[in-house]
Amino acid sequence: MTSSVLRLDDTLKGYVLTVQEFAQLCAAAFAGAFRRPWYLRDTLYHMDRIGVGSLFIVLLTGIFTGMVLALQGAIQLEPYGAVQYISRLISTSVVRELGPVLAALMIAGRVGSGIASELASMQVTEQIDALRAEGTDPIKKLVTPRLVASVIMVPVLTVITNGIALLGGFVIAHFYLSIDPYFYWTWAFEALRLHDLIYGLIKPIVFGFIICMVGCYAGLNTAGGTVGVGQSTTQAMVTSSILILMTDFFMTKVFVFLG
């Protein structure tokens, strides 16, 4: 009985410690963005890797999401004779929810796990210690440029995903459901309000932060050689995906409340 209580105590302390370390890493990475040296070249390099490197997968995600929404939406709207309003359904669901979430999940799979495995490899080969020995702050050098790049590029990729999803929906709406292009695009934009666009941009900023910081935390806390690298990569992918879905729910709740 006593040993079970002690084990539970240790487990809870472990969780609290993890949250504390994660918060400290986030604070240090954020503060690093406002202190010299800036590592602009590293930031641009990571913006290219995250942004241009993820373009293809978000294009595919966007186009197929839009096409599927058009097909499924048409089935639901047909009994009410409202198929011509399909673009309203596509634009609101994509801009508010599907674009940010699906793009973030795809980027988490590609970028988050990449960040975790790269930093984990550096950790197990003592490169992080070498950085400290050379007088460099590893958080400032490795985490802050990735954080800045991620927070900038994930919203950009989300906007692209949204645009491509609308285009994918248009392809099905026009060529399969015979909806007039003018009608499609007019209703697509009519349905959107300013706060939809603002909320649709706040979400990917938060998701970009989660993807980067979870990947960095997992990578920097790697132990146990190559096995540890694999575990960190998996942990980063799973944790960031779950956190994206959870924070999406809570953000949506807040945005609905705000109106």
Binding site: S121, Q127, A130
Partner: peptide, 9 residues
């Protein structure tokens, strides 16, 4: 000088 050299890859 680290055991595994720790050169930046």
């Amino acid at each position: 000088v680290f055991q595994g050299s720790a050169l930046f890859d």
